[in-house]
Design a protein around this nucleic acid. Structure first.
Ligand SMILES: [Mn+2]
Ligand SMILES: [Mn+2]
Ligand SMILES: [Mn+2]
Ligand SMILES: [Mn+2]
Lengths: 219, 219
DNA sequence: TAAATGATTTAGGTAGACCTAAATATAATG
DNA sequence: CATTATATTTAGGTCTACCTAAATCATTTA
């Protein structure tokens, strides 16, 4: 019913709107690494299929149907990522590309059984919430480590950046999901921060960029 | 590198040649439920890519490269089927369509890890051999139940027919893989046979068509 | 071996999903 | 408000993978 390409467009529009950006032709093109003219093409077709609301020169939005499909694809993506990490022992930096393919497999039965097999996980390996069977997502608007005050404790619960290099950096620093940390100090100069890994009692220094890209939950 | 459509053509040619039929344009078209003219089109392109050997008006054969891809796709298909049945608890009559999609996911790492996760199974849920990492298949040329003699014992090890209706019939009759049977009698009239399910000591009567489509291994 | 039949290819299209270059609309700026 | 600059669309292609109808080849069959 909906092609792989169409699903990727719906996902892109969904993601842009979530991030409070408007799904302009150019923004979509950049996300999908394609050209603006191709996007215009596709928006017309998706509008025809009543999956997006599109008027010339205006940013696109998803219809109910379009959004339901986008969320379903995201559900599949995140469930597969969870499977790859938990069952097949992939690293969290290795699963996104594979999930980009698996998310387009069409079989509701497959996804429901996979969900059961995995015990209906709530979060994917990057801390992103997995939509449930009915398409409900509880989008956490977590704080970011940059907002934590000195001497406060927190758990690392997710990443804002998803690049492999960031994930690999976090692995190297032992800043994995679930880690309990305490903010020891933050330097005025460049906002770099000294944090303690509570369990291992190790202290490490991280840049502001890192602090901005780690989601935390205060204790 | 190779598209979903290309992979399906390679698989079709491989299967035809295995079954000692020649991969003629029409035979391929029938298997793939497409038109002969479309097949000609594709054969030209696959020939260009050196995946098949093709000369006008002649049946196609696979090159080494083409065969390697075909076998890899079959490996993926059968591993996924095994996963679906063993881990996700699908019935053997429910997995083929889903595996038709999953077999095209491109990621050698994924398949190797899946294989490990499943403990490198040798046979899929229908008794078909799973090619190993190096692309080696030990094609069993099993006997079929129709060749069993009266009073002989055997195990059911595979199905020749893969249709859902046949698989569902076998489920209903409790003729699942691994079942030990004894041939009690075969009627001259229509070759229908009376067999005993050794473990449950039940006797059932099956048609010649069924006998021709069940692979067995004599004890 | 000529005609008929069936298999295969060619010719000419379509739809999806891209692309570049050119035209046009919108937004920003002096 | 007129002029740039930027965003977006249109025009015109390409490539893949299909299709129908017509032409051609190959194999039977008379
Ligand atoms: Mn991902
Ligand atoms: Mn993720
Ligand atoms: Mn199958
Ligand atoms: Mn099978």
């Amino acid at each position: 019913m909906t092609s792989l390409a169409e699903e990727n467009y719906l996902k892109a529009i969904y993601a842009l709107n979530l991030g409070d950006s408007s799904a302009s032709t150019n923004a979509i093109a950049e996300r999908l690494e394609t050209k603006a003219s191709s996007v215009t093409d596709m928006l017309k077709r998706l509008n025809e299929k009543k999956l997006v609301n599109y008027l010339k020169y205006r940013p696109a939005t998803l219809t109910e149907k379009g959004q339901a499909i986008a969320i379903d694809v995201i559900r599949k993506h995140r469930l597969w990522e969870y499977f790859l990490v938990e069952k097949l022992k992939f690293g969290w930096d290795e699963v996104h590309e594979i999930a980009e393919q698996l998310e387009h497999i069409q079989s509701p039965a497959l996804i429901n059984r996979l969900d059961e097999f995995l015990n209906a996980p709530k979060f994917d390996p990057h801390g992103d919430p997995i939509p449930n069977r009915e398409g409900k997502i509880t989008e956490r608007h977590n704080q970011v480590l940059a907002n934590l005050s000195v001497d406060e404790f927190a758990f690392i619960v997710g990443v804002k950046e998803h690049s492999n290099s960031f994930l690999q950096y976090l692995d190297a620093m032992q800043l994995v999901l679930g880690t309990k940390i305490k903010l020891i100090n933050r330097f005025d100069y460049d906002q770099s921060a000294v944090i303690e890994l509570v369990d291992s009692k190790k202290e490490i220094t991280i840049s502001n960029e890192v602090s901005e890209n780690l989601y935390i939950k205060t204790t």
